[in-house]
C-alpha cells in the first residue's frame, strides 16, 4: 500500500502520444531511509495500441535501482469515452550516500507498426535528506 507523496509527478517522457510520469511515494520502505520508492505511470493518447512497452533504468555505481514487474506491457488505443488506461511500475532507488540522484532510462515500445527506442536522463528527484516524509 504505497501512498503517493504530495509532490507533483514529474513527466520524464512525453513523445509519440506516450507519457511517462514519476510519482514519488511519501514513505521509504520499512527500515530503509536510503531508498526512494518511485511509481512509474505510463499513459497513451495514441489512436493505435502501444505494445511491447519496456522501461529500463541505470543509476551511478554508488546507487542501486530495482524495477518491479510492470502491471502490463501494452496500452489500448486511446478512447475518449473509456477511462484512460495506464501501466504502473514500481522502481526502488537506493542512495546510501545521499548524493544528488541521476537516473538514465531506456524506453522501447511499438506504436502500431513502428518500433521506438527512446532514452533520457532524469534529475528532478526530491533531495535525499527529505526522503521518508515527502
Amino acid at each position: 500500500s504505497i501512498k503517493p507523496s504530495s509532490m507533483l509527478p514529474v513527466t520524464i517522457f512525453d513523445k509519440h502520444s506516450l507519457r511517462v510520469l514519476f510519482h514519488f511515494a511519501r514513505d521509504c520502505p520499512p527500515a530503509r531511509p536510503d531508498v526512494l520508492v518511485v511509481i512509474i505511470s505510463m499513459l497513451s493518447s495514441a489512436p493505435v495500441p502501444i505494445t511491447n512497452i519496456r522501461f529500463q533504468s541505470a543509476v551511478p555505481k554508488t546507487m542501486r535501482v530495482k524495477l518491479q514487474p510492470p502491471s502490463g506491457t501494452e496500452l489500448p488505443a486511446f478512447n475518449p469515452i473509456l477511462p484512460p488506461a495506464a501501466i504502473t511500475q514500481v522502481l526502488l532507488l537506493a542512495n546510501p550516500h545521499k548524493e544528488k540522484v541521476r537516473l538514465r532510462y531506456k524506453l522501447t515500445f511499438d506504436l502500431g507498426e513502428e518500433s521506438h527506442d527512446e532514452s533520457g536522463d532524469v534529475e528532478q528527484f526530491p533531495p535525499p535528506e527529505s526522503w521518508g516524509n515527502l
Binding site: R54, S57, V59, P60, K61, V65, K66, L67, Q68, K106
Partner: peptide
C-alpha cells in the same frame, strides 16, 4: 566544452534482470 563527467554507471536494469 562539457566538464568530464566522472560518474561511473551501473548497467541498465529492467524488471526481468
Amino acid at each position: 566544452s562539457q566538464s568530464g563527467d566522472a560518474t561511473t554507471w551501473n548497467s541498465f536494469q529492467s524488471s526481468d534482470t
